[in-house]
Design a protein around this nucleic acid. Structure first.
Lengths: 168, 168
DNA sequence: GGTATAAGTTGCAAAACGCAACCCATAATG
DNA sequence: CATTATGGGTTGCGTTTTGCAACTTATACC
């Protein structure tokens, strides 16, 4: 895929698409959250082809989500550990699983997230205002930030203009 | 991609990977959030190939994230509108953009989310306990729910067992 | 020294992607 | 009412990526 135009721009969503948009990457991250650290364990748990796994791990390391550490005690062993950036993606993983449970699994939820300390199921993640109030999609707007380039700024301005002329 | 084993199981993350894991899908959804509704507008804004766009819109409609509506006034026109399921994905989109701004754009943030009413920037999305307290990754566990099959249940139990023997 | 294990790499067929050109139905124009 | 324009696609074709299996390298165990 020769990624042009939008993918090269500094839109954060375009960039994150490159990181978690590829097949298997989210599953690999889930395994990492579950504690998997070795190449062969990722392969066995996921049933992923070894070359694809190799590629995904390499990219996740390059992009700073995983750290590749050679074991001291056994020099054959390599450990892939979540970095701070990787752990910081956890809320999104939780959100994705919650959303999927609700909309793709007919409300039946094979996977739950619990608070370790209390064992209670987590509430759904939500977008909140600064005062903590939960916001609906229509109450939120996406706008250009201070570091947006001209193209992106223009894009968001067009969107705001278009949104005002829409009924919904 | 012949998706076997894990992709066919009822793990919600496996399913959501099929929905948003494909290239362009997240970008198409972002455009939908920005108010884009017409085929040609998606094409122009994203610079996406028409056949790929056609495929992604079709899948998003099939999976219930977009609704395909023929216009009454001009019968050439087709409108793609976010469904409730699609709008419900908004927190995740916000989270992805926020995460990307922090970790992939060197903290510079070309895109911001604001509360329409007040114009204030949204705080980062977070995983919270039932009492509203923000939780870190290490405080959260992924466990099998009531509707998990045997394989998945076994998988989570193995993970819990493994997690207890890990230092971190 | 021989075998087992961990972590990859290589080669090949099948599928997915990007691009441009083409197609069909409806609407506007003269 | 024939002609052109517009919206929403589909079709071919060449390139890239994926999946699968087999092979490779380096270390550890017996």
């Amino acid at each position: 895929m020769k990624q042009k135009s939008v993918f090269k721009c500094n839109c954060p969503l375009a960039r994150v698409t490159e990181v978690i948009g590829e097949p298997w990457t989210l599953m690999v991250l889930r395994e990492a959250f579950l504690g998997t650290r070795h190449f062969n364990d990722f392969e066995r748990e996921l049933g992923i082809a070894r070359n694809i796994l190799s590629d995904r791990l390499k990219k996740l390391v390059d992009r700073g989500l995983l750290a590749r550490v050679r074991s001291e005690s056994d020099k054959r062993v390599v450990e892939y550990r979540l970095t701070e950036a990787g752990r910081d993606l956890m809320p999104i993983l939780v959100g994705l699983v919650q959303w999927s449970g609700k909309w793709l699994c007919d409300g039946r939820s094979p996977t739950r997230f619990i608070e370790r300390e209390t064992g209670r199921e987590l509430p759904r993640i939500a977008v909140r205002a600064t005062d903590g109030r939960e916001l609906r999609a229509s109450e939120v707007a996406m706008v250009a930030g201070p570091d947006a380039d001209a193209d992106l700024t223009a894009r968001y301005e067009r969107a705001v203009a278009a949104a005002q002329s829409l009924p919904n």
